[in-house]
Design a protein around this nucleic acid. Structure first.
Lengths: 204, 204
DNA sequence: CCTCAGCCTTAAACTATCTTAAGCTCATTT
DNA sequence: AAATGAGCTTAAGATAGTTTAAGGCTGAGG
């Protein structure tokens, strides 16, 4: 049962009591996801936090002319959720499936994957009854924030070639698993230009 | 006393008890900051969360050739801190002023400002004794994350002109208060190019 | 076994953005 | 009053990145 992997993950951040571990187990919903399957689509309300047990996902938006732009990847031991949609629902509206703002993002499996999802009401239950989870998710969000801030800094201060080199160093695993088209979309450049960048780097 | 402004800010997020309000007051340190004064410099360890009572700050990094790149602005009722440095210190090292990773960022006042700072040990004290603050700062970080994610999406998917127009709409106040050089640095373009963008927008 | 879609590359023409340099204005310092 | 410096603009020439089009390769599905 993959739930153990999630509990281990939490334990590494902040050790859980048996009771807290049981609470996690009671709200964790395991799902198998096929390649190309969506766990969130534009227009949906995002109602889960998703923990990736195995596999790989991309989270992207589709622009006016149909192009995809990868906002984030997610792999083993990472979380994916559309926070803007997820957190837009106030407690009073938790029972209304149409409350909150619809998502502008897609989350799609790039590989066959196994995930554990926690529903909003269950997560709020954890927050209220076991305050430690507030702290855990605060730390998770802080770490994601730091990573995102570095990415913004790179986007505004470096060339595409520098960003690609940094990507290779920062995500050696992802750069093996992902097709270059997806990496280009993450970096904000065209696949053709990534190809010429790779050629010039290769000849150095 | 500006501390009341901070307590009101917290109350708007999640109502505080009198005791929690007193706890905030006991750890809040008010400071007046002059224009061009720094509250963080590259190489420093970031030891505070800073709440802006009034005024305006820029947080930026300086690259290898000395150019500044604005990562974030902060104005009234917003927080500024270098999370990467601030959160890199483990509780065991709280008393060691050289623990943790040095900051890569500067935080500098653009206007004469008043701030309230909370030290790391005091913030941890709040988190441990009044769990509500975990939740409050989780929500603050979530909201900052959402904003930053939108910015990444814009950076990878839109032109400089679109980004500038979006900036004007999203931060009408900042676009009045800031010189265009600072806005250009935030958008990741040169001031000269921003100038030509403004001309083409004006003639529409 | 064949086919087709997705991926990767190349190249030429085009567009967005940067660099450098100059000139103007306004506020601050000498 | 003169000098300095920051901010804004303009313009020419250079570089970074896109678009379009084409061809080759590979793996999954009929």
């Amino acid at each position: 049962m993959s739930t153990q992997k999630l509990i281990t993950y939490f334990n590494n951040l902040l050790p859980l009591s048996d009771e807290e571990g049981d609470a996690v187990a009671s709200v964790a919903m395991e799902r198998k996801i096929k390649r190309r399957q969506f766990i969130l689509q534009e227009g949906d309300r995002c109602r889960h936090y998703t923990f990736i047990v195995s596999g790989c996902f991309k989270m992207y938006s589709v622009d006016a002319v149909g192009k995809e732009h990868n906002v984030q990847f997610g792999t083993e031991n990472e979380w994916l959720t559309d926070m803007a949609s997820f957190h837009s629902v106030k407690p009073a509206d938790f029972k209304n499936p149409n409350a909150g703002i619809p998502s502008k993002l897609f989350i799609e499996a790039i590989e066959p994957s196994v995930i554990i999802q926690i529903e909003r009401t269950d997560l709020v239950f954890l927050f209220e009854h076991y305050p430690k989870f507030n702290r855990i998710f605060r730390v998770i969000t802080e770490n994601n924030f730091i990573e995102l801030q570095n990415r913004v800094l790179q986007n505004i201060s470096t060339t595409a070639e520098q960003r690609y080199s940094a990507f290779l160093m920062q995500y050696p695993d992802l750069s093996q698993r992902l097709p270059n088209t997806q990496i280009a979309s993450f970096l904000g450049i065209t696949p053709e230009f990534l190809s010429t960048i790779r050629k010039t780097i290769g000849s150095k």
